[in-house]
């Protein structure tokens, strides 16, 4: 984005300052935090009676929505508000951009201090005490997410496990590149697919190390609700154990920081439905397939909308998931 567009965004936010906080007068010091192709993240300072407060703006690239699977930023803001009410740690939503603001789709939320880099969460000395209880705490947080009312979000996609497998199988087929290991995985996933869940729950969809704000006291905020949907709650418990999110600490399946038994114990103790071990395992295999298909799809994006080196390199991470699938299914 060029500097004039950035200045325009800052002016727009400045004008909205009074609606972002009691007695707030100005918004300044706008800085871009990520250069993602699916979402912009900005930080700025809100000036008010208590001094400057850092806030975060999440916005569609250039203010325009591009992703087809994302729920939309307005829905994401609603999810954050409902999650806060359900006792899930999330950043507080301060303001949702309106069409008349002329700044596109997005919302402003509070800035939560902490660590989101998966490798540091799995390995840093400073977070070692948190790692002792983090898996259990993730289970507790997931139980609270799954207790949220899915009927309050009729706009979200509803999908059974079998429908999700079919969706990714179609995405793999569309990539037009044969990957025999993926075919093996799809056969296994179809043959062992859990039935539609007894109760369809609100599923975060991307609950993993890297999307959690962590401090020495544990989970401070659950971020990135953009692929939330309604389905089998076990999906979230499998995804955080998927090998891709262990950041090299392969013997600690929960995010590279904890054990499955602790995750499940926390989940059940906080009121989550009983975890069926074979289903949890199925969702881990599904997770490696899913991330693999997503990586493989990066080639299409690389040859199209986003010809960045970063995109190309992520596409070449597909093979990580192929070895993970072989380790799960053929060792």
């Amino acid at each position: 984005m060029d500097s004039s567009a950035e200045a325009e965004l800052e002016r727009g936010l400045d004008g909205l300052a009074p609606r972002m906080g009691e007695g707030a007068t100005h918004a300044a010091d706008l800085r871009r935090l990520t250069a993602g192709a699916t979402q912009e993240v900005w930080r700025f300072e809100l000036t008010g009676p208590g001094g400057p407060t850092p806030l975060i703006l999440r916005r569609a690239p250039g203010g325009v929505r591009v992703s087809e699977t994302a729920v939309g930023l307005e829905t994401e803001a609603q999810l954050l508000a409902a999650a806060a009410e359900a006792g899930v740690p999330v950043p507080p939503v301060r303001y949702v951009l309106q069409p008349e603001d002329g700044l596109g789709h997005g919302f402003v939320m509070g800035f939560v201090e902490g660590e989101t880099l998966g490798g540091r969460i799995a390995k840093s000395e400073a977070l070692a005490p948190a790692r002792a209880f983090l898996a259990r705490q993730c289970g507790e947080v997931l139980a609270r997410i799954h207790a949220m009312d899915p009927d309050a979000f009729l706009q979200l996609r509803r999908a059974t496990p079998a429908e999700l497998v079919a969706q990714y199988k179609a995405a793999y087929a569309a990539s037009g590149w044969p990957r025999p290991v993926f075919d093996l995985a799809f056969r296994w996933l179809e043959a062992n697919c859990p039935p539609p869940p007894e109760q369809m729950k609100l599923v975060h969809g991307d609950f993993r190390n890297g999307n959690l704000m962590i401090g020495p006291d544990g989970v401070r905020a659950v971020l990135d609700w953009e692929i939330a949907h309604v389905g089998d709650p076990m999906e979230d418990l499998g995804w955080i154990c998927t090998n891709a999110w262990r950041f090299g600490v392969v013997d600690k399946p929960v995010g590279g920081f904890g054990q499955r038994e602790d995750l499940w114990a926390g989940y059940e103790a906080a009121g989550g439905p009983p975890v069926r071990r074979e289903h949890a395992h199925w969702w881990e295999v599904y997770g490696s397939m899913r991330w693999g298909v997503m990586c493989a799809g990066m080639t299409v994006a690389f040859r199209g909308a986003d010809p960045s080196v970063e995109r190309a390199v992520i596409a070449r991470r597909t093979s990580e998931n192929e070895i993970d699938l072989l380790r799960l299914l053929a060792s």
């Binding site: 093996l184 070449r316 093979s319 070895i323 299914l329």
Partner: peptide
Amino acid sequence: MDLTTPGLSDHLWATTLAKLAVDQPTYAAY
């Protein structure tokens, strides 16, 4: 064909290890 097919598992492993040697030789699972 499936994992009971003679030679298939070995072939998939050899092919995948060769890909990892190029793509991500430091990947922990590799």
